[in-house]
Nucleic acid binder design. Structure first.
Lengths: 340, 340
DNA sequence: TAGAGTTAGTTAAACGTTTAACTTAAATCT
DNA sequence: AGATTTAAGTTAAACGTTTAACTAACTCTA
């Protein structure tokens, strides 16, 4: 049987309360007894029982991670990386993270994830878009929530966000710096704050570069930013403006689709048109040519979310909701080049 | 505050023991009181406290899922799918699954995953290869273990496996049926039972087809089955035998690498050579041409593992270790064709 | 009809922590 | 020196379940 706090107490010659206080490194304990107890803990290889602790503190030590199921059907393991980041982020803590997927179109008929119904989590992280219906039901529960790469416009939530505006700016600026003037933007799901912000960055950089924004250079009506939609968007874009010499795709999936379109239509990248994506997914370097993109530190988004929710759980009172912005980085590969 | 078993007992007019027995649907309870209690549970929206239960039963309700970290750096989300399958598999159960990654070269200096050290799991699932060092340390712990897509040759473990031999057979038979005679095999990490078995299937099907096995048609010395290694293996293969008309790659990643090699060297697929992979990853359908492959039901591997470990946990005594074989399926796309 | 057996439910202890309230001894103050 | 404060640790109750042992009410059986 595993040793309990009693065994430690006996071995160290103190009461179990003292052991408990040492574990929480409470100020009341002298360093002398502290070391004594710690020694006993080491020697017995003691680990406190989570159940017993949970019973009295009414905590579970778990954090729920929620994702819409469609993300796992995608080729690009974007949110998977983020999830992995959360797992890594818990290493210094006493938390475990529990994953659950919900339907992309979660609605009133759907059940909440089991760990929520059973109150098996102390807080939850929602990555990517979730339906309003879902968010509203979760909010009623009075459980700490942190969003990643999304925030509902219905309130002021804790969120960790990609610096999409700046990403949009540096991506576009890169093209401008290369001498391009007719710079297209292709995007999908423009109502998603991330896509919207990338588009904003695009417009800002254009303006800073003295280039007038032109609606004809934009295709933003695709339903979501997937490869096939990137293909379609590229087709539409060239139909709207034949003189395009550079394209900024709102993410790498669409960029890959656009690249496919170009290949199919004898448009050489980067000779005829430069192409830049956003996200930096693994597939990028296997493309022909390897894709220039904006690197999103996916892993970090996860670790930041853990730190944030930890704080939110600790200070329930801490109500000045706040957003954490994770910086992005330009990765120049071979799909962009100077305009001749 | 959440309702407790006491609230339910009071509402139903029974003792808390009765409520507990109803929850476990113990035979001692009449249907009358059972329904009475269940009604109270529903009305109060009662959910038993996992901590309290865990404290007395010495269980945690968690299952650990262990994966070497390199899998998450790969483009193909193979094990991610399996993990997701386990999550799905727990829906009918009372388990949660906790993910942890370990180093690919885990050795004596490395720490075991936290949930193991803290005894926060009732059983663990190990997906893919793990070092002998890791497995040995885990075994000492006397905790139920189930392997997925791997098994150490040091013993007789519970495992859920892909039917790799049959997969190798049907893949090769497909090529044989198309009239190919000079059929290459490219593989990496041949010491991995999955790769080894696919190779066995290849040889068996060759024999059944009346084709003599030829070492010159095989490249099996790549370190692991990745895209770049697929590229290299294809190069070696053609260097060994120019007359190859079909290739069976041990997985899709290598097939994709091989396809790249062919493209770079003006070898047309499927006109000049037919190519078949193994796994059926998302990327396959975006390839040019889309890849014929053997579909591995990744999701199912996960759900099967959950069912298996559930049983192992339940019947600790059940020691006739057993293997579950998950069937595979031939998916014909455009990378294979009849030999002219 | 008494006694034994069976059935359906109850009682109470136990699980391993945390923490408010308490104790004791030492330090500080007047 | 005696009273008061402070410091460091202890005591004991509480958290919400499970389950062995018990009880009371029936049902048989001879």
């Amino acid at each position: 049987m595993s040793p309990t706090i009693k065994d430690v107490a006996k071995k160290a010659g103190v009461s179990i309360a003292t052991v408990s206080l040492v574990i929480q490194n409470h100020a009341r304990i002298t360093t002398a007894t502290k070391t004594k107890v710690q020694k006993a803990i080491k020697e017995l290889n003691y680990h406190p029982s989570r159940s017993a602790k949970g019973l009295v503190t009414k905590t579970t030590g778990n954090i729920g991670f929620i994702l819409t199921d469609d993300h796992f059907l995608q080729t690009e393991p974007f949110y998977t990386k983020i999830f992995l980041g959360t797992e890594f982020g818990t290493r210094g803590t006493n938390y475990y993270v529990l994953l659950a997927t919900i339907a992309r179109d979660f609605n009133s008929k759907d059940e909440l994830p089991r760990f929520i119904l059973e109150r098996s989590v102390d807080g939850i992280i929602i990555a990517g878009k979730a339906t309003q219906d879902f968010i509203e039901r979760i909010e009623l529960l009075d459980i700490p929530i942190v969003f990643i790469d999304y925030y509902p416009n219905s309130g002021n939530f804790f969120t960790v966000l990609i610096d999409n505006i700046n990403g949009g700016i540096i991506a576009t600026k890169h093209l401008v710096d290369l001498g391009h003037k007719e710079i297209g933007f292709i995007g999908g799901d423009i109502s998603h704050p991330s896509i919207y912000d990338r588009f904003s960055g695009y417009k800002q950089a254009l303006e800073s570069g003295g280039i007038k924004f032109n609606k004809k250079n934009c295709v933003i009506d695709e339903e979501d930013p997937s490869r096939p939609n990137g293909y379609n968007a590229a087709k539409k874009l060239f139909a709207q403006n034949k003189k395009i010499t550079a394209i900024f795709a709102c993410n790498d999936a669409m960029a890959i689709g656009a690249m496919q379109y170009c290949t199919d239509n004898k448009i050489k990248i980067p000779n005829d048109v430069s192409l830049i994506g956003f996200d930096d997914v693994e597939a990028d370097i296997f493309l022909n040519p390897p894709l220039t993109t904006i690197k999103v530190p996916k892993f970090e988004l996860g670790t930041e979310a853990i730190h944030l929710i930890e704080n939110v759980i600790k200070n329930k009172s801490y109500h000045n909701k706040k957003k954490i912005l994770v910086p992005v980085e330009l990765i120049i590969r071979n799909s962009t080049r100077e305009l001749k």
